[in-house]
Each structure stands twice: as C-alpha cells, then as structure tokens.
Write a protein that binds this DNA or RNA. Structure first.
Lengths: 172, 172
DNA sequence: GTTAAATAGTTGTTGAAACAAGTATATGCC
DNA sequence: GGCATATACTTGTTTCAACAACTATTTAAC
C-alpha cells in the first residue's frame, strides 16, 4: 500500500523528497506505535525504555544525564525529569559525581535490569514481526539509505539552526 | 556516519531489524526536527501544519475531524483540541454538518491559506536541503523500502493490537 | 414510533514535552 | 587566590499528548 492510498491523497506528492520524507514519518510512526503499546503494557514509555537500555549498556559506572540525552535516538530536552520518573519507580538511582560534583551519574538498579530483561524477548519478537518479512538484503539497503539520508543534515546550512542545545556541544 | 557512531554505541546492534528500526527513528527525528524549527518560526507545530495541508487539499467543503485524524501521518488521538487551537488562531473555521448534525466540518480560512502559502517555498527548500543530495534513484528505492517495511504491520498478529482507535474504523 | 446501539465530537484530567530561568560546581584568566 | 565564564543539572511554567468519560445525533431493531 502506498502512502498516497493510506492517507487518501489524490494528488500524492509534489517532489520525491517530500514523498520520501512523509513515508519516513509514516513508517516511523506505525512501527513506533507498536513498541509504544508493548512498553506501555510494562509501564514504560519508549524514551524510558531507551534510557534504560543506555544505562544497561553503561554498567555500574552509570552515565551522566548529558550523555543519556546525547545517546537517545530522539532528542529529549529534559533528561532530569525523565530520570526523576525512572528513579521514582526504582528503576535507576542517582549518584553525585565525586571528582566533578556537578555531574550526576545515573545507574540502573536491579529492578531496572529486571524490567529490561522481561522485555528483551518481546522486543526482539516485535522487531521480527515488524520487519522480519524484509530480507536481510533489503534491510541492509534500507539501513544504508537511511544513513545516507541523514547525511544532508550533518551541517545545517540555514541560519537559525545548530545552536545551543541545552549547553551541549560536549565535543570530542 | 553510522548510527552506532552517532549515538556512541560500542556493541552496535543485536539484529538487522533492530538496526533498521533505530535508524528509522533516528532519521525521522533528525529530519523532523528541521521542520519543527521551521514551523515553529511561523507559530505552527508539525501536526498543525499537516492538518492545514489536509484542509487546503479538501477545499471549501472542508473535512470532518475524523477524516483529518485518519489522514495525518502520525496518529493524533484528539483532533478536537487540535482544531480548537487552529480555530483560536483564525486559521480554520468549524461548520456543523447540515445533513448529519453530528459531524463538524473544518474549513481552512483565508488566513490559514496565507500561513500555508508563506511556508510553501521554505518547505520545498528544506526538503531539498535535507534529501536533495540523494539521487532520484535512491529516493525511489528508499520510498519503496519504507512502503515494504510498513507492510508487516498491516495485520497485527499479536493479541492486544488493532482495537478501537477512538471509534474509528470508518471503512471505505 | 419508541428504544437500543452506534457514530461524531466535546470535555475532564493526568502525565509528559518544551522552553526559559535559576543554582551549584569547575575552569581559566589575571 | 579572586572574579568571570562555562558546565551540569534543577526548577518553574506553559503547552501539548493521551486516555477515559460524557453529550448529541443518527441508524437499526422491534
């Protein structure tokens, strides 16, 4: 089913770029809704799940809020309150940095690890249910094209782009 | 730049499906942020812009709230208040259906058309800036793969899927 | 024709997203 | 070593998103 049929557009698209963009958003929305439902059934949002995944990868050392923000697939401008919620539910714990007392290291708790573990299997299953019908070749092609698509945005050409971002820029 | 580098993941991905999914979300997020900035500079959200586009396509007859919801690229479970906001800013007007007095037809106003017109050129420009570096062939391939990716979700196999959706189902 | 079910929107409420301003610690300059 | 700047996070506030309950109208059943 083409996107034109799906959203009932008669004069489908003006340019291939627009068609690609709208297809991208639509696909992301459709797939992401499936995960949102899955996570919601476990009391988590997609962002929360994502953050927990990052923290599981970080191990006992944890990660600074800033780093969490940078690693999330979708930009989140308020990591503090995201961590607040996770902490309130006992899934993570905060630890003030010792060397740098401004920093706050967020560490996943045993309960957080359990929550993730309970999701590992269903998540993998859903990934396969959603995209398993595509061959490995098509998946590889899709991945390559998506990476290529992002490249145009590396250096925002316009005027009002690429500024502050909550004091980040953290740099290599 | 691969997504693995981008979000600083050492052990990148567990399956190609996961890699494709995360690349998809990331790309959608990156591109969509550009548009969000553009629209915000004109006092609109992406959803609001999208709704106005739908209403411009609908012409003087307008569209029912239900139809707007169905045509938006990302599902929005509260069209009423979306229309509220647009109405408050004078971009659309409501008209109670005459044949079916339950229905509310939403029509774009002259001011709404102006707002869109002011964005037509910048939007097309941004589309090109974001994806213009990809050849027409790659764009076509990407579009095809995205459509293919959505196909796995046509009939949700699981249990807790495919229910109500705010009384919709509306059918052909 | 009157009642039951379905449809189209609205309203209420809670939680999260987004932007801006504020506090505490570190770093660098002189 | 004291002051300016930058960094890391927190807090305040407004707006939007999401789910559920409610009203009005239509359709269908009997």
């Amino acid at each position: 089913m083409t996107l034109g049929d799906e959203i009932g557009k008669s004069k489908p698209f003006e340019t291939p770029e627009q068609e690609a963009y709208l297809n991208l958003l639509r696909t992301a929305s459709v797939l992401s809704e499936g995960f949102a439902r899955l996570f919601a059934a476990h009391g988590l949002s997609e962002t929360a799940y994502n953050a927990l995944r990052i923290l599981r990868g970080a191990g006992e050392g944890g990660r600074m809020c800033q780093e969490i923000g940078g690693q999330l697939v979708a930009r989140v401008p308020d990591v503090t309150r995201l961590v607040d919620r996770l902490e309130r539910e006992g899934l993570v714990s905060r630890r003030r940095g010792e060397r740098d007392r401004r920093a706050v290291y967020v560490v996943i708790t045993a309960r957080g690890l359990e929550a993730l573990a309970a999701l590992d299997e269903p998540v993998m299953h859903l990934h396969r249910a959603q995209l398993g019908h595509m061959g490995g070749e098509d998946l590889a092609a899709l991945i390559g094209l998506l990476e290529r698509a992002r490249r145009g945005n590396a250096a925002p050409a316009g005027g009002a782009a690429g500024e502050a971002r909550t004091g980040a820029g953290a740099g290599t």
